[in-house]
């Protein structure tokens, strides 16, 4: 058994995961990062995207987060997100639809058009699809 550390993944609505992990892989603001036990203290903001928990002795778990924060302290890793879900629970059709809708809004640019919101929605939809894609690749 390799070294493990505590990891908590919480969204504003509920707790997604709490337990021991070997490694956490998340998409930080400045790029993807992997955290293993003994990492120095770190705080980073997260982009919408996947969070992968590596257990070693069993299959990895994949989550989608809509952005938020990742904190590393000697006692473990905390991931705080506004909304998030297990990859298995994501709805691909809804994500594809949301992406198309956001793209349409960005192209048409109506008078009451909110650029920031559409851009955020597009980024989230793309991130969701990325997570679904990853999950499928792993299963294949």
């Amino acid at each position: 058994m390799a070294k493990t550390m505590k990891c908590n993944v919480v969204s504003a609505e509920r707790e997604l995961y709490s337990g021991d992990v070997e490694m956490v892989i998340a998409s930080g603001e400045l790029g993807d990062l992997g955290v293993t036990p003994g990492h120095s203290p770190l705080i980073t903001t997260l982009k919408p995207g996947p969070v992968r928990l590596v257990f070693g002795d069993r299959d990895d778990e994949l989550f989608y987060v809509s952005g938020g924060f990742l904190e590393v302290v000697p006692s473990g890793v905390n991931i705080l997100t506004d909304t998030g879900d297990r990859a298995e629970n994501l709805d691909e059709a809804a994500a594809v639809h949301a992406k198309a809708e956001a793209q349409r809004l960005l192209e048409e640019q109506h008078a009451d058009f909110d650029y920031t919101r559409a851009a955020v929605e597009l980024a989230e939809a793309v991130a969701r699809l990325r997570v679904i894609e990853q999950l499928r690749n792993r299963r294949a």
Binding site: E29, S40, P41, L42, I43, T45, F69, P74, S75
Partner: peptide
């Protein structure tokens, strides 16, 4: 709090202390 860190330590902030702290 885990006292093993002692008094003089700091987080690594990405992308930068000001932005992370502000948001957090």
């Amino acid at each position: 709090f885990d006292e093993s860190l002692g008094d003089h330590w700091d987080f690594i902030y990405e992308p930068g202390a000001a932005r992370v702290l502000e948001q957090l």
